[in-house]
């Protein structure tokens, strides 16, 4: 029954779904080309706090994926559109590599705090500065709230702990803009002219990709590549619309059943 709705858009996660580090998932390029021949809009959506769209695009093109920059929507893009929408002038606590996605945004006399993963900025002075701004009413915007991530020398703190600390200090709740937030998915669709029930999301993260998308009213397809672990499909309720081996299988399912 779900399959009877006319599908208009497909959202695709990047890392873990199309590629793992610098290797493409086998058959993913061809599957993407097949999908492009169908009449659906495509967007590539990812949570990143340090890679600009241009960085992401260059990697995808290196791996021979047929992608255009305007089709990429990241948590940084989401942060940017929120800033534009509300006409905030942000204090940007993001790594330098992410700054180019905020080109043109007025950052003078800031009245909002944006936090990504930014070890260089997570020092006492900058945290105090951010804290005082929030206490004086500046909104706190988090690119996402990951607890930690893996770096070459071991585990390292993500932005989440610092966001949580500032929330505690100021008794406020951060606006999180990345996956799995509902607004992330609706914003990704906003220029495609379709509603959530006409879209499907493909990703390897049960909670952030599939759970988030389904919570926003979309279909979610979980692929068993990247960070997928046995049994992940049971960790969300309702379960994924479909769980399949990899991106090419997901495309196959869409072409056969959802169009």
């Amino acid at each position: 029954m779900a399959g009877r709705r006319a599908l208009k858009a497909v959202l695709i996660d990047l890392s873990g779904t199309l590629h793992i580090e610098d290797t493409a998932v086998p058959g993913a390029q061809e599957a993407l080309s097949r999908l492009r021949k169908a009449s659906v809009a495509i967007k590539f959506v990812t949570n990143t706090t340090k890679e600009s769209k241009r960085n992401l695009l260059e990697r995808l093109q290196r791996l021979n994926f047929d992608v255009q920059e305007k089709e990429i929507f990241t948590s940084l893009t989401a942060a940017r559109s929120l800033l534009e929408q509300r006409q905030h002038r942000p204090l940007l606590l993001v790594e330098d590599s992410a700054l180019e996605d905020f080109t043109g945004i007025d950052t003078s006399d800031p009245n909002a705090v944006v936090i990504g993963l930014a070890p260089d900025h997570f020092n006492y002075q900058t945290m105090n500065k951010a804290f005082r701004m929030i206490l004086d009413g500046a909104p706190l915007i988090a690119i996402h709230k990951a607890r930690y991530y893996k770096r070459k020398d071991g585990l390292a703190l993500g932005p989440g702990p610092f966001v949580t600390g500032l929330e505690y200090a100021t008794d406020c709740k951060a606006t999180v803009v990345g996956k799995p937030e509902k607004t992330f998915f609706t914003q990704a669709l906003s220029d495609l002219g379709c509603s959530a029930c006409e879209a499907v999301m493909i990703g390897d993260d049960a909670r952030d990709d599939v759970g988030g998308a389904q919570n926003a009213g979309m279909f979610g397809i979980l692929v068993k590549t990247g960070k997928y672990r046995e049994g992940d499909e049971h960790k969300i309720s309702p379960p994924p619309h479909l769980t399949c081996d990899s991106f090419p299988d997901a495309v196959e399912h869409i072409l056969k059943n959802l169009l």
């Binding site: 105090n128 005082r132 989440g160 610092f162 600390g165």
Partner: peptide
């Protein structure tokens, strides 16, 4: 010279990071 973050903030950060 103004308000400064106290230990609770960093306690919360570590609590969140390590559950």
């Amino acid at each position: 010279d103004g308000l400064k973050l106290d230990v609770g903030v960093y306690m919360k950060a570590l609590e969140y990071a390590c559950d």
